[in-house]
Design a protein around this nucleic acid. Structure first.
Lengths: 235, 235
DNA sequence: CGCGCAGTTGAAGTTATTCAACTCGTGTGG
DNA sequence: CCACACGAGTTGAATAACTTCAACTGCGCG
């Protein structure tokens, strides 16, 4: 089924948080140097190839992750084997918040592109968070962000016709972005995000292309007609 | 549209947290007596009738709430005016977590039955939470619970055929309950939870009744045939 | 009594799914 | 280097599922 690459194979070095290029937008953003001194466990970096699993639902959650580059999908499975993508994670996002509470992971986390992540022990955050107000606040803010995303996926991506859902997904992909161009996920993944079949997704995308709402400027890079897509999304 | 009852009309007294009957399962469960001494702002109780709004999306979130009895729906609206129920709050659940982060409320919270809530200032939790590890942990746990619910609504209640969704909703209503009986929400609300129309919901419920998967033992109290509903839910 | 609302049901129309076929690009092995 | 297999995407046709609109029921309440 999934080619199971252990994280061992994906190791790509130890991180130096103090000099991290993402330092200002990352979970540990508020920490002072003296806080960093308390981090004794090494923070490792990993590089995942498309399709690689970062973790599986049910695995012991000993670690949390920060996404440095790339995209991952968070997948949940239904009793009948069907799958549903409940969220995607992008650079600066934190994965595995549930590990702070000593929970097993609740999703499969799968890279959709070449993806780099930093891994740190959940224990670290648990201990530091109880005493460091900056981290405490940052954690709450992360949870709230995940919750906002979850709610938005329900109202925007799982409501209305397939046309509307696809349009809303496309708009979501270019939100707070400089250009209105974006890469598309596989039709299968888009279907799993929207709760429709691969074929329906394909037909809808094809229709959007014919109507020039979507123009392929280079391989798998699409320029969006935002005003008209917005019209469809809001109908 | 909605009969707008201000919370002023619903006031029903001041709370005494130390003697609260929900004390052990509530947000402040971990607090010691000395912590309670720091709570100077009064904690008020309110009683809502079905259809009353506890708060509106966009309102300044100065307060958080604990549900004592009853049920509320959390509703989000689509650009086209359609509505979607993204979660339900039951006794011991906390509403308005986003207020800790100084956010406006993200949903409309509407009572589905006669409902009692306690109201406390978000500031209180913000200040206390930064210093009280028990509360800190409890808060994270509440956020995670909300997130679990959100994910479950996506995978269970917004995926598959209408039959499956209705069956899963029914099963959800009796989970961790002593009896397998439950009250049903209005068809309109159930539809808004499942992302299907009122009519489809009604037809499906009617079909379940005909097949005795659902037996009305008293007005709007239904006994569920759990094994067979589970079969449908998992298909 | 009669109005209004929630629920139900019917019939028609629309939309999405299903299953199958076919294309195209990539990569592998002969 | 070519042949071929494979997977992702696309498309068609038939079917199934859901929506829409409209009518009708039953019940509670002024």
């Amino acid at each position: 089924m999934t080619k199971s690459v252990t994280l061992r194979d994906a190791w790509s070095g130890e991180a130096n948080c103090l000099n991290c290029s993402l330092r200002t937008s990352v979970l540990f953003a508020g920490l002072q140097e003296r806080d960093f001194e308390r981090i004794h466990d090494p923070i490792d970096q990993f590089t995942l190839k498309p399709g690689n699993n970062l973790y599986h639902a049910g695995d012991r959650g000993d670690y949390m992750f920060t996404v440095r580059t790339g995209v991952l999908k968070l997948v949940q499975y239904l009793p009948d084997g069907g799958q549903r993508i409940v969220r995607i994670a992008r650079p600066t996002d934190v994965l595995g918040l549930e590990a702070i509470l000593d929970d097993a992971y609740h999703h499969d986390a799968v890279a959709l592109q070449q993806t780099e992540v930093c891994r740190f022990p959940a224990r670290l955050v648990r201990d530091l968070g109880a005493e460091t107000p900056e981290l405490h606040r940052e954690l709450m803010s992360r949870w709230q962000r995940a919750l906002n995303e979850a709610d938005a996926w329900l109202t925007e991506l799982s409501t209305g016709s397939a046309r509307q859902r696809v349009a809303r997904l496309l708009l979501r992909l270019v939100r707070d972005r400089e250009t209105s161009e974006c890469h598309l996920f596989s039709r299968e993944d888009m279907g799993a995000m929207l709760g429709v079949t691969t074929e329906t997704t394909s037909r809808t995308i094809a229709e959007f292309k014919r109507q020039s709402l979507l123009v392929e400027t280079s391989p798998n890079l699409f320029l969006l007609d935002i005003p008209n897509l917005r019209r469809i999304a809001e109908d």
